[in-house]
Lab assay of single mutants.
Amino acid sequence: SDFTIRIGDRTLHLKNVSEEILKILEELLRRGIDFEELRKIVEELIK
């Protein structure tokens, strides 16, 4: 499924993301992860 994360004025667009990855990202966001850290993790996950 497609997913968009907005943190402040920044946006991260994800396409064809599995439910498992979404759950991980949601947990990281709940813990207050930094946007740049989140972006790096996402890039690793979707390689």
Rank of each mutant, 00 (worst) to 15 (best):
S1H: 15
S1E: 13
D2L: 00
D2N: 02
D2Y: 02
F3R: 04
F3E: 03
T4A: 04
T4H: 11
I5V: 10
R6S: 15
R6K: 15
R6H: 15
R6D: 15
I7P: 00
G8Y: 02
G8H: 03
D9H: 06
D9P: 02
R10I: 11
R10Y: 13
R10K: 14
R10L: 10
T11V: 14
L12R: 00
L12Q: 00
L12C: 02
L12M: 12
H13Q: 07
L14A: 01
L14R: 00
K15I: 08
K15V: 12
K15L: 05
K15D: 04
N16G: 12
N16T: 02
S18M: 01
S18T: 08
E19G: 13
E19Q: 11
E20K: 07
E20R: 06
E20A: 06
I21C: 02
I21N: 15
I21L: 11
L22D: 04
L22G: 12
L22R: 15
K23V: 14
I24T: 14
I24N: 11
L25A: 11
L25N: 00
E26Q: 11
E26T: 10
E27K: 04
E27F: 04
E27R: 04
L28Y: 11
L28C: 10
R30E: 12
R30V: 11
R31N: 11
R31I: 09
R31S: 08
G32K: 02
G32T: 06
I33C: 08
I33K: 09
I33H: 10
I33Q: 07
D34K: 09
D34C: 01
E36M: 06
E36L: 04
E37L: 04
L38Y: 03
R39N: 13
R39I: 15
I41A: 09
I41V: 11
I41W: 04
V42I: 10
V42T: 11
V42W: 03
E43P: 07
E44P: 06
E44W: 04
L45N: 06
L45G: 05
L45A: 09
L45R: 03
L45V: 07
I46L: 15
K47S: 13
K47C: 14
K47G: 14
